[in-house]
Amino acid sequence: MEFLVASAVGMMTACGIYLILRKRTFPVIVGLAMLTYAVNVFIFASGRLTIGLPPIITHNPEGYTDPLTQALVLTAIVISFGMTAVIVMMALGSFLETGDDNIGMEEDRETPAKPQEGAE
């Protein structure tokens, strides 16, 4: 199971990093969302994995999983929604103001890489 979680975190990080290196706002927002998932799962997994032992105090426990990382991640999930909403609004605002959803500044736009015909 550890391997699955680790590979999923790695995969989501890679996808997030690739997307935040794009030049348009929307892929960058999606990339940040992917990085949020990756970081949340990372912090959660740093409490080590346990199956079927939620941190709810019961009468006959076999032990519990680490509750602290869960508490940290819970607020992180909600805050990240707030932050995503802010950057979405900023992206929308810049698109409506300029008619363009490029994230680079002017200098960057003067020398855009040539779009290649037929490239994916």
Partner: peptide
């Protein structure tokens, strides 16, 4: 499609390196 193939490959390599690094770290 704006970036050249070279740039996309470069970004892909950076992303893959970061992903492998984070995955190995958490593992």
């Amino acid at each position: 499609v704006e970036s050249s193939t070279g740039r996309r490959t470069r970004d892909g390599l950076i992303a893959a390196a970061a992903g492998i690094g984070i995955g190995a770290l958490i593992y």
